[in-house]
Design a protein around this nucleic acid. Structure first.
Lengths: 157, 157
DNA sequence: GCTTCAAATGCAAGTTTGTTTCGTTTGGAA
DNA sequence: TTCCAAACGAAACAAACTTGCATTTGAAGC
């Protein structure tokens, strides 16, 4: 499929702006990178089509919508049989409170980022996701006291 | 400061849409939630002003811009003196490759999410951030083999 | 029960932004 | 040098956002 569409300096400059604020008018982007608005528009469209831009989204402050608690969970599984791992991936990904889920090497198998309203909710979630799951050997919990830096920005410079 | 401006069902429905795609026309949002476009626009504006919506951004596929490797790092510090912790927070947050940084309870003090082009880059980063930092006692690395679910979406239902 | 007032709404006009068209330029390859 | 494909900018066009205004709604006070 994708013929790795080789980004030039214009594309990178545009991405840097859009990763900070994708509501920036194309005219303004154009002025910033020395390109006309249509040129900017065509490049953005192409990057969306090729999947370089995965999505355009609003970032919501979790605390202000009733989810003040962010938690990291390291999960260790019993068996790494492909079939069971896939099931675990699907299971974790399907839970809205699980914001992020990574399958990792090292002393754990999965790392989850979870957002909840109360510790009671987290406790209920652990029961559902871990205690009632035969393939989960053990898990470790890290509660965030400070979300020092939160984002999904990728350096493009 | 903010007198938590109490979200109603309309606001939540709008947020749910914007967290998936903030390029959705306000008219379309209006149809989905049974409100006129101006009403939608005013609610969005208010949520942006009150900080419920933190930002509007494009999500970029790291692999397609030359950062195919995502790594989690658990960092343990020597001293938890407020001054040193603050310095660590500032130091981590200032690094572009550090996409996320949380100060946590538990067996570690910080958890970082790092995005790099090569393991050599990561190795160089560890030298800079950890080995050359007297307050870092130890760190553990987890390399992501699969980014099962990646986002910052917060449940609002 | 009636009045009042603040907040939110919808419609319609006005403005900004996004998109398409089209002719031109640019950089390579034949 | 010629040719061709890709990308560009200016301008016309379409769509979306924004504002003003009159109306509705709901709760508090009389």
């Amino acid at each position: 499929m994708s013929i790795s569409p080789e980004l030039d300096a214009f594309d990178r400059a545009i991405l840097a702006i859009l990763q900070k604020d994708n509501a920036t008018p194309q005219r303004a982007i154009g002025e910033a990178v020395n390109l006309s608005a249509p040129a900017v528009q065509r490049r953005i469209k192409r990057m969306e089509e090729t999947g370089i831009i995965r999505a355009n989204v609003a970032l919501v402050d979790p605390a202000k919508v009733g989810h003040p608690i962010t938690i990291f969970v390291e999960v260790e599984v019993e068996s790494e049989r492909a079939e069971l791992i896939d099931a675990a991936k699907r299971g974790f990904a399907a839970v809205p409170e699980v914001q992020q889920c990574y399958y990792v090497t090292g002393e754990a198998d999965f790392i989850l980022v979870v957002t909840v309203a109360t510790m009671a909710d987290y406790e209920a979630l652990t029961r559902r996701l871990f205690f009632e799951n035969n393939n989960v050997k053990r898990f470790r919990t890290f509660v965030a006291m400070d979300r020092v830096k939160v984002g999904l920005e990728v350096p493009v410079g």
